[in-house]
């Protein structure tokens, strides 16, 4: 059956896999996202509460507490400086947690991916649905914190209305990074390494708590490689209304990053689940 063999070979060719991967952003993926929304509607209040408690504690302890002894940064009070960074950071944590622990539970313990793949939905589309949900969670928690800091008088410019777009990019980036780990880790405990070795360093060295100018040149250059750094620059600039053309490059950096790593979560999940 030479015809069949050539077809199979075509389906497994790397270039076709990559095209399939981008094509899986479609209405089937939205169905998977909607399934997660059905669950979200049951416990949205606790979900939101959990998402905002920690960032608010940071804001209180560091902004109000540490802020008393820290000098103004770039003409801003310390709480004003860190507030937009905390928006970015909490949005990152939401996406990263959703697409690591929560996705792993759905995939590994509840076998939900297996159940959905038996329907017309493909595994690639399941992964995209999960990424969209992680992005949604990220947008949600970032927006809630944004509302809180606005109420505290820490949002200075109407440019801040563009922050949700930044949060969506942020959500996509960290949903993808977390989903890559979900495709790789042998057991759920292994996510501890992900948070200790990947998420925590990113969150400490992306300019949330201190301006990177104070760090050695090498650290500054390395920070440019961290996606959260660009998110923090964008969020802070828009919040305080310090808008320049340069911000486009930061946004582009995030878009390119998202597009480049896009096929990886799907490929790893396929390798993991389908032998």
């Amino acid at each position: 059956m030479p015809m069949l063999k050539s077809l199979q070979a075509e389906n497994t060719r790397p270039s076709n896999k990559i095209i399939t991967s981008y094509k899986s952003v479609n209405r089937w993926a939205i169905k998977v996202f909607s399934r997660n929304l059905v669950v979200f509607k049951k416990n949205w209040a606790t979900t939101i509460l959990f998402n905002i408690v920690e960032p608010l504690l940071y804001l209180a302890a560091l902004g109000a507490g540490l802020g008393i002894i820290v000098a103004d940064i770039e003409g801003m009070s310390y709480i004003q400086f860190i507030a937009p960074g905390i928006v970015a950071m909490s949005a990152m944590w939401s996406a990263a947690a959703e697409c690591s622990y929560d996705s792993f539970v759905r995939m590994h313990f509840q076998k939900i991916y297996h159940a959905i793949v038996a329907t017309p939905v493909s595994l690639e589309e399941v992964v995209v649905g999960e990424l969209l949900y992680g992005t949604f969670k990220s947008l949600l928690s970032g927006t809630v914190i944004m509302a809180v800091i606005a109420a505290l008088g820490l949002v200075l410019s109407p440019w801040a209305l563009l922050v949700p777009i930044v949060l969506i990019l942020n959500g996509l980036v960290f949903s993808q990074i977390a989903m890559i780990w979900t495709g790789l880790v042998p057991k759920i405990d292994s996510f501890a390494y992900f948070f200790t070795l990947v998420v925590t360093p990113i969150f400490l060295f992306s300019g949330v708590f201190f301006p990177l100018d104070v760090m050695p040149e090498l650290v500054r250059q390395l920070a440019w490689l961290l996606p959260l750094y660009h998110v923090v620059v964008l969020t802070r600039s828009l919040t305080i209304g310090l808008v320049s053309f340069e911000l486009i490059y930061h946004a582009l950096w995030l878009v390119v990053f998202i597009l480049i790593i896009f096929p990886f979560p799907q490929a790893l999940m396929r390798r993991r689940l389908i032998k």
């Binding site: 089937w28 169905k31 909607s34 399934r35 059905v38 669950v39 049951k42 509840q110 076998k111 939900i112 297996h114 159940a115 959905i116 038996a118 329907t119 017309p120 939905v121």
Partner: peptide
């Protein structure tokens, strides 16, 4: 499938409705 892979986060009826959406 061999292993029950029902959606544990949904009710009995929701399991059918969400599956229908696929």
């Amino acid at each position: 499938p061999q292993e029950n892979n029902l959606d544990l986060e949904l009710t009995v009826r929701e399991n059918l409705l969400v599956y229908a959406s696929y």
